[in-house]
């Protein structure tokens, strides 16, 4: 016997809750690093260019793609959370809205990835 059904447990909403937390933590730590690396513009142009040059390598290019993916998911799921808190309609359809978030995610990454990966792997 499965436990009594609840609004979230084990379904789309719970997984999206987990995605929201993990992407949030990842973005937070990236933000700390990103402010530190940008601060190098105040040290010297040489220091900044050297460190930011690392972002243009294939490995960091892929990490950046992951970062953008995390931001897109966190952003649109954040809007879903606001909607579910605010409108009864959205509360009733919160599970369908999870799939709307994934749909927007796919469309936005389809627009972003070819261009970004072209920059990273295609040279100029």
């Amino acid at each position: 016997m499965s436990p009594a059904p609840t609004l979230y447990r084990g379904r789309e909403g719970m997984w999206m809750w987990l995605v929201h937390r993990t992407t949030g933590v990842a973005i937070f730590f990236f933000l700390l690093i990103h402010v530190l690396d940008t601060s190098l513009v105040r040290v010297s142009p040489e220091a900044y260019n050297e460190v930011i040059g690392a972002y243009k390598t294939p490995i960091y290019g892929l990490i950046e793609a992951g970062l953008v993916a995390a931001i897109v998911l966190h952003a649109f799921n954040g809007l879903r959370i606001i909607a579910v808190d605010r409108w009864t309609w959205a509360l009733r359809h919160q599970r369908m809205l999870v799939w709307v978030v994934w749909g927007i995610f796919v469309v936005m990454m389809a627009a972003f990835l070819p261009r970004h990966l072209g920059h990273v792997f295609g040279g100029a």
Partner: peptide, 16 residues
């Protein structure tokens, strides 16, 4: 990341 040369354009001169 999307305009110009994307990530490749980012350097000191770009920030300036």
């Amino acid at each position: 990341l999307m305009t110009g040369d994307g990530v490749n354009q980012i350097d000191f001169a770009f920030v300036a």
